[in-house]
Simulated scan of single mutants.
Amino acid sequence: MPDAPDTAAHYVGIMSGTSLDGVDAALVSFQTEFPRLIASHFRPLPADLRQNLAELSLSADVSLQKLGETDARLGELLAECALQAIAAAGMNPDQVRAIGSHGVTVRHAPECDAPFTLQLGDANRIAHITGLTTVADFRRRDIAAGGHGAPLVPAFHRAVFASPDENRVVLNIGGIANITILPKNPSQPVTGFDTGPGNTLLDHWAQRHLGQPIDRDGAWGASGQCHQPLLKLLMDETYFERSPPKSTGKELFSPAWLRAKLEMLAKPPAAADVQATLAHLTARTVAQAVQRYAPDTESVLVCGGGVHNRHLMALLAELLDCPVESTGKFALDPDWIEAMAFAWLARQTLLGLPGNLPEVTGAKHRVVLGAVYPGRLG
């Protein structure tokens, strides 16, 4: 008979990013030194919930009623997704130690007078419905320590991708793109930051003109031509020139931001050309960040939804002087890296270990992240 699962070694990570496409839930085993994905579950966000989250993240006039109801509904959905991932592994909740839930960011303002970040997805409901201890609200402790609260995944990238033989960059292309710089010299610090838009504007433009949530394989963008005057306007954004640590979100790179840039042109480009140009924007800003802050990079490992955009991946390969490959090369599915990271972060919290990297977030020191919501199963 196979050994019974070690309940202290199995965690579920739940992630829903700025693209608002859905919820990723990953059941991860830490029985060995290298984390292993046991099972996963993806659930698209219901249209009305997605609309509410989009409105809350972009509107200056927020309804507290809508905020509270959305938080509650999302918490219930996240709990269901966690249970589905556990069931997909043929396991029961009592065989899992805890859940790490990122939630959905509806506002990220780490540089205002009173810095803050806000993620929805009521962890009380997750803990109650699943019966499992839930760790959530990871970002605010880093902000309390003087950091940006983002990106947090680089600590996990270091744990699973750092190599003494090669200078690597891990590129996550979610709604926002971010890089983790992993020097092969262990005496050098791991750094990283948000480079700018990833999929968020590409997805918005595809939804608007194709009626589809994504430009599948980047085919539509590949059919267009990069509009150089528009690209110049898009690149003329002070965020790209700022030095790290830095983080950003849809608060800056929003449909309104794109619309304002388009209105500066005497004649609007064809829709496919705008899509092509947005792909060039993501690729150029990533490449510039790598070339400026990690010029000795020997390979770039890509994860997140953007890895499936063949047009974008081809542009990155053209712009970067090193191999650009999926994290699948290391048997880590690129679609589940972030969810796995929040399982890892939950484990760090329950072990009393820090989860942030001050060189990445700008925090004054390392801290144990998150709030713990006890479950009835231990």
Rank of each mutant, 00 (worst) to 15 (best):
P255Y: 05
W257F: 15
L258A: 14
L258E: 13
R259Y: 07
A260K: 15
L262T: 09
E263P: 07
M264Y: 01
P269F: 05
A271P: 05
Q275N: 07
T277A: 02
A279V: 07
A279Y: 01
A279I: 00
H280D: 14
H280N: 12
Q288M: 14
Q288V: 07
Y293C: 03
A294Q: 01
T297I: 00
S299L: 07
L301K: 07
V302G: 09
V302T: 04
V302Y: 12
C303M: 06
G304P: 02
G304H: 03
H308C: 05
N309R: 04
H311L: 08
H311P: 05
L312S: 05
L312Y: 06
M313V: 06
A314F: 00
A314G: 02
A317C: 04
L320I: 09
D321E: 15
C322Y: 00
V324F: 13
E325A: 14
S326R: 09
G328Q: 10
G328N: 13
F330W: 10
F330M: 06
A331G: 10
D333Y: 06
P334R: 00
P334G: 00
D335R: 11
D335L: 10
D335H: 06
E338A: 06
A339C: 11
F342P: 13
F342C: 12
A343Y: 01
A343T: 00
R347H: 06
R347I: 05
R347T: 07
L350G: 08
L350N: 08
G352K: 09
L357Q: 01
P358C: 11
V360M: 11
V360Q: 10
V360Y: 03
A363F: 12
A363P: 05
A363W: 09
R366S: 12
V367M: 03
V367W: 00
V368I: 12
L369G: 12
G370N: 13
A371N: 05
A371E: 10
V372L: 12
V372D: 04
Y373V: 06
P374L: 04
P374T: 01
G375Q: 06
G375I: 04
G375K: 05
G375E: 04
R376N: 13
L377I: 06
L377P: 01
